[in-house]
Deep mutational scan, measured.
Amino acid sequence: KRVEVKPYVLDDQMCDECQGARCGGKFAPFFCANVTCLQYYCEFCWANIHSRAGREFHKPLVK
């Protein structure tokens, strides 16, 4: 058996893009583990950032 640990998915993290400004101060539910991102995102910022060319295939890690 093999266990994969993702220590970078933490609870209670603010969106790295808007710092809570676009999501009413809620914590960010998404983390993008792609090396070009490596950031936490609220729903609004995830949709906005990941609609751009080259990022549309990134998969979010959801808390």
Rank of each mutant, 00 (worst) to 15 (best):
K1Q: 05
K1N: 15
K1Y: 05
K1I: 06
K1C: 05
R2T: 08
R2F: 04
R2Q: 11
R2W: 02
R2E: 14
V3L: 07
E4Y: 05
E4R: 03
E4A: 07
E4W: 03
E4N: 07
V5F: 09
V5S: 15
K6C: 09
K6L: 05
P7M: 05
P7L: 02
P7A: 06
P7Q: 09
Y8G: 15
Y8A: 12
Y8C: 08
Y8T: 11
Y8S: 15
Y8F: 10
Y8R: 14
Y8N: 15
V9L: 10
V9G: 09
V9N: 12
L10D: 12
L10F: 12
D11G: 10
D11C: 06
D11P: 07
D11R: 10
D11L: 05
D11H: 08
D12C: 04
D12A: 08
Q13S: 07
Q13G: 03
Q13M: 10
M14S: 14
M14W: 04
C15K: 02
C15W: 01
D16L: 05
D16V: 11
D16N: 15
E17L: 08
C18A: 01
C18D: 00
Q19P: 02
Q19A: 12
Q19R: 11
G20I: 00
G20W: 01
A21V: 09
R22E: 06
R22K: 12
R22F: 04
C23A: 07
C23E: 07
C23T: 09
G24V: 09
G24T: 04
G25K: 12
G25P: 04
G25L: 06
G25F: 08
K26I: 05
K26D: 07
F27P: 12
A28V: 05
A28L: 03
A28S: 04
A28P: 06
A28I: 04
P29R: 10
P29K: 10
P29L: 05
P29M: 07
P29C: 07
P29Q: 14
P29F: 04
P29T: 09
F30Y: 12
F31Q: 03
F31G: 01
F31D: 00
F31N: 02
F31W: 11
C32Y: 00
C32I: 03
C32S: 01
C32K: 02
C32Q: 01
A33H: 07
A33T: 12
N34L: 00
N34D: 10
V35G: 14
V35K: 12
V35Y: 04
V35E: 14
V35T: 13
V35N: 15
T36Y: 07
T36N: 11
T36Q: 10
T36V: 08
T36S: 12
T36K: 11
C37A: 01
C37I: 02
L38R: 13
L38K: 15
L38V: 09
Q39S: 12
Y40H: 09
Y40D: 03
Y40W: 10
Y40F: 09
Y41G: 00
Y41Q: 03
Y41I: 01
Y41T: 04
Y41N: 00
C42T: 00
C42F: 01
C42Y: 00
C42S: 00
E43I: 02
E43Q: 08
F44L: 12
F44M: 07
F44N: 10
F44Y: 14
F44W: 10
W46L: 04
W46G: 02
W46M: 04
A47Y: 08
A47Q: 12
A47C: 04
A47I: 10
A47G: 10
N48T: 13
N48F: 10
N48H: 13
N48A: 12
I49F: 10
I49W: 05
H50Q: 01
H50F: 00
H50I: 00
H50S: 01
S51P: 08
S51T: 12
S51L: 11
S51H: 10
R52M: 14
R52L: 11
R52Q: 15
R52G: 12
G54H: 08
G54S: 12
G54K: 06
G54T: 08
R55A: 11
R55L: 13
R55S: 11
R55M: 13
E56S: 08
F57M: 15
F57N: 15
H58Q: 01
H58G: 02
H58W: 00
K59R: 13
K59N: 05
K59F: 02
K59D: 08
K59E: 15
P60G: 04
L61V: 14
L61I: 14
L61F: 08
V62I: 08
V62D: 07
K63L: 04
K63A: 15
